Amino acid sequence: MVKEKKFKFDLPALRVLENEHNYLLHVMEDWHLIVLAFERDMYTLEEGHEALQTLRRLIIEFIDPLKNHTEKEEEFLFPLLAKYVGTEQGPVNATEEEHEEIDAYIGHFLHHTRGDLSDMTMQDMKDVVKDAGEAFEVITVHFVKEESILFPMVNNILRIEEQDKLYEQLYTSIL
């Protein structure tokens, strides 16, 4: 029996972002299974090379939806909250820094998995896959922070007109 996923937030703008988080987490599961298999030494060398190629492809497919999501937050959500809580420190600043950290892990992984991977040893592959694992962990914790800190701020701080405008701005596809 499939359990129906309930939204945590009633505000339409927050439901858009929460739904995007749910989608991204679902997509991440596919590539995280490969990361876990590397961590648990489940591959032969040949299987590792194939798995690494698959992992690279899945992460590349993941980048556009992730970037579309984070760009919407950075363009619309963060500036609106920053009017009330500032950007020098605090949750908006911390969240933006996490976006950069995610980009760095994914970029580092992609950089080290370019070209011919057939010469990579199992240890080389495990080392580079760690970046994908770190990206997964940062993204997962990041979404929890947004949903437990930033999203309630939207509910509590923004005026109704601002919430409505934010919904109009965010109601676009990340695909």
Rank of each mutant, 00 (worst) to 15 (best):
Y105R: 13
V85S: 03
Y171W: 12
E73N: 07
V16C: 04
L77D: 01
L25K: 14
F136A: 13
I106M: 06
T54P: 00
P79D: 07
L45V: 14
E18Q: 08
L170P: 03
V92S: 06
Q123D: 13
M1W: 04
N22Q: 13
A132E: 02
H111E: 12
W31E: 07
R114M: 10
E18I: 11
H69S: 08
I106G: 05
P65V: 07
A13V: 06
D64F: 07
K72W: 02
T113F: 00
T95I: 06
L52K: 01
K3P: 03
A82K: 03
E71K: 12
Y171T: 10
E88I: 09
E100D: 15
V138Q: 10
N19R: 14
E50L: 12
G90F: 02
T54W: 00
G86S: 07
E96W: 13
E98Q: 14
Y84M: 05
E100Q: 15
N19H: 10
N22L: 11
L166M: 04
E47F: 00
E71L: 14
T95E: 05
E137S: 14
M122R: 08
E98G: 08
F78V: 09
E4M: 14
E39R: 15
E50P: 01
G107M: 05
V144R: 13
K72A: 14
F78C: 05
E147I: 07
I157V: 14
E71P: 03
E50S: 06
Q163W: 02
E18K: 07
L81S: 04
F151M: 11
E101V: 15
D30G: 07
F136E: 07
T172Y: 10
I34F: 00
I149D: 05
K67Q: 13
S148K: 14
N19I: 06
A51Y: 00
L66G: 09
P65L: 05
